[in-house]
Amino acid sequence: MASLISCPHCGVRPKEEFTIRGDATPVRPGPDAPEEAWFAYVYLRENPKGRIRESWHHTSGCRRFLIVERDNVTHEVYSVVDAAQAKEAAE
């Protein structure tokens, strides 16, 4: 786990200021999606080794949700972007 996270809004901050919500990969299905899609969204999670995308909340800082891409083996942090911007970029 990284000791320091570079928040795009606040700069380099200690990890204790953040709350990790979890896997950032699941995308909320559309209103008409079948129940299986909702079930998968709410309950099914991979537990990958290596590069992961996580949703972090800068709870004691700017209170923005961030997408942190990091490696859970080497602890390297690849990128930290605002969740809204990440969503925009993905769409």
Binding site: T19, H57, R63, A84
Partner: peptide, 13 residues
């Protein structure tokens, strides 16, 4: 509060 922020920022920005 965190829930509202999550919804606004990540679900419906």
């Amino acid at each position: 509060m965190t829930h509202l922020e999550h919804c606004a920022q990540t679900l419906w920005p």
